[in-house]
Each structure stands twice: as structure tokens, then as C-alpha cells.
Amino acid sequence: TFELKGKVGKVVKIAEDHYLVEVEGDKWIAYSDEKLSLGDRVMVVDVDGLKLKAKRIP
């Protein structure tokens, strides 16, 4: 999973306390310091076990 750092994905679902992000065809649980919206493009900035930390990108 460490190779996911720096990869770009898309928010495909918003849950109460996390997001579901699709990166290279796989879906991952993600969290972010900022509020994300459905369809936002994100970059993986860190990997915490099986969770990704994501940041919105333009």
C-alpha cells in the first residue's frame, strides 16, 4: 500500500466519518483534513495501515 502515496484518485462515496476513494481501480477508505465532495480528485498523501489520507487537488 505504500506505493499508493502520491497517486491520484476520486471520491466515490461519503460516509459519516470517512470517504471511499477509488485509486487505480481499487476502492480504499480514506480520511482528509479538509471537507471533500463526491467526485473530487484527490492525491494520496499518506497511508495508515489500510486507510489513506487524501488531499483535494484541482
Rank of each mutant, 00 (worst) to 15 (best):
T1L: 14
T1S: 15
T1W: 15
T1I: 15
T1H: 15
T1E: 15
F2H: 15
F2G: 15
F2E: 15
F2C: 15
F2K: 15
F2I: 15
F2D: 15
F2S: 15
F2P: 15
E3C: 08
E3S: 02
E3D: 06
E3K: 02
L4C: 15
L4R: 02
L4N: 06
L4G: 15
K5D: 15
K5T: 15
K5S: 14
K5Q: 15
G6Q: 01
G6F: 02
G6K: 00
G6E: 04
G6M: 01
G6T: 01
G6L: 01
G6W: 03
G6D: 13
G6S: 02
G6N: 04
K7N: 04
K7E: 09
K7D: 06
K7V: 03
V8M: 09
V8S: 11
V8P: 04
V8T: 14
V8Q: 11
V8N: 07
G9W: 01
G9E: 00
G9V: 11
G9F: 06
G9L: 14
G9C: 08
K10M: 10
K10G: 09
K10W: 09
K10F: 09
K10P: 06
V11R: 00
V11L: 05
V11N: 00
V11P: 00
V11D: 00
V11F: 00
V11W: 01
V12F: 08
V12L: 13
V12C: 08
V12K: 07
V12Q: 05
K13H: 10
K13V: 09
K13L: 10
I14G: 04
I14F: 09
I14L: 12
I14V: 12
I14M: 12
I14P: 02
A15R: 13
A15V: 14
A15M: 13
A15C: 12
E16H: 11
E16C: 12
E16N: 13
E16T: 09
E16D: 12
D17H: 09
D17Y: 10
D17N: 08
D17R: 10
D17Q: 12
D17P: 11
H18Y: 09
H18M: 13
H18A: 08
H18F: 11
H18L: 14
H18E: 14
H18C: 11
H18V: 10
Y19H: 03
Y19M: 12
Y19W: 11
Y19L: 05
Y19R: 00
Y19P: 01
Y19C: 07
L20Q: 08
L20F: 10
L20A: 05
L20P: 00
L20T: 10
L20W: 13
L20D: 07
V21Q: 00
V21P: 00
V21R: 00
V21W: 00
V21G: 00
E22W: 11
E22M: 10
E22Q: 06
E22S: 07
E22F: 13
E22A: 06
E22D: 09
E22I: 14
E22V: 13
V23R: 01
V23P: 00
V23H: 02
V23T: 03
V23S: 02
V23Q: 01
E24F: 06
E24P: 01
E24D: 07
E24I: 06
E24W: 03
E24H: 05
G25F: 06
G25H: 06
G25Y: 06
G25N: 07
G25A: 06
D26S: 14
D26A: 12
D26I: 13
D26R: 08
D26P: 05
D26W: 14
D26F: 14
D26Q: 12
K27Q: 11
K27S: 10
K27P: 07
K27F: 12
K27I: 10
K27C: 10
W28K: 01
W28R: 02
W28I: 02
W28V: 02
W28L: 02
W28P: 00
I29K: 07
I29V: 11
I29R: 07
I29L: 12
I29M: 13
I29F: 14
A30K: 00
A30E: 01
A30W: 02
A30T: 09
A30M: 15
Y31N: 14
Y31F: 13
Y31R: 08
S32W: 02
S32M: 07
S32C: 14
S32Y: 02
S32N: 05
S32A: 12
S32T: 05
S32Q: 03
D33P: 07
D33F: 06
D33I: 08
D33Y: 07
D33W: 07
D33H: 06
D33C: 09
D33L: 08
E34K: 04
E34G: 08
E34V: 04
E34Q: 07
E34L: 04
E34A: 05
K35V: 10
K35Q: 10
K35W: 11
K35L: 12
K35F: 09
L36F: 05
L36M: 11
L36A: 02
L36G: 00
L36R: 00
L36D: 00
L36C: 11
S37I: 12
S37R: 12
S37A: 11
S37W: 13
S37G: 10
S37V: 11
L38M: 11
L38T: 08
L38Y: 08
L38E: 12
L38K: 08
L38F: 13
G39K: 09
G39S: 11
G39P: 01
G39L: 10
G39F: 10
D40K: 02
D40R: 02
D40Y: 04
D40M: 06
R41G: 13
R41F: 14
R41S: 14
R41C: 14
R41L: 13
R41M: 12
R41D: 14
R41Y: 13
R41Q: 13
R41H: 14
R41V: 10
V42H: 00
V42K: 00
V42I: 15
V42C: 07
V42A: 05
V42Y: 01
M43G: 04
M43Y: 04
M43V: 14
M43Q: 10
M43L: 12
M43H: 03
M43R: 03
M43K: 06
M43W: 02
M43T: 08
M43A: 05
V44I: 15
V44L: 03
V44S: 01
V44W: 03
V44C: 03
V44G: 01
V44E: 00
V44T: 02
V44P: 01
V44F: 15
V45G: 03
V45E: 11
V45N: 03
V45W: 02
V45D: 10
V45P: 01
V45Y: 02
V45C: 09
D46R: 02
D46L: 03
D46I: 02
D46Y: 03
D46E: 08
D46G: 05
D46C: 03
V47N: 05
V47R: 04
V47Y: 08
V47G: 05
V47F: 14
V47A: 09
D48C: 14
D48E: 12
D48K: 04
D48W: 07
D48I: 14
D48T: 09
G49R: 05
G49T: 05
G49N: 12
G49M: 07
L50Q: 09
L50F: 14
L50K: 08
L50V: 08
L50E: 11
L50M: 12
L50S: 13
L50Y: 13
L50C: 14
K51V: 13
K51L: 10
K51P: 01
K51S: 08
K51E: 07
L52P: 01
L52W: 01
L52A: 03
L52M: 03
L52K: 01
L52D: 01
L52R: 01
K53R: 05
K53H: 06
K53W: 05
K53P: 01
K53F: 07
K53L: 04
K53G: 03
K53E: 04
K53S: 03
A54D: 01
A54Q: 01
A54P: 02
A54S: 05
K55N: 06
K55F: 02
K55V: 08
K55M: 06
K55T: 05
K55W: 02
K55P: 01
R56A: 08
R56T: 06
R56V: 08
R56H: 08
R56Q: 09
R56F: 10
R56G: 11
R56M: 09
I57E: 12
I57C: 15
I57R: 03
I57L: 12
I57Q: 08
I57T: 06
P58M: 09
P58E: 11
P58C: 14
P58N: 09
P58Q: 08
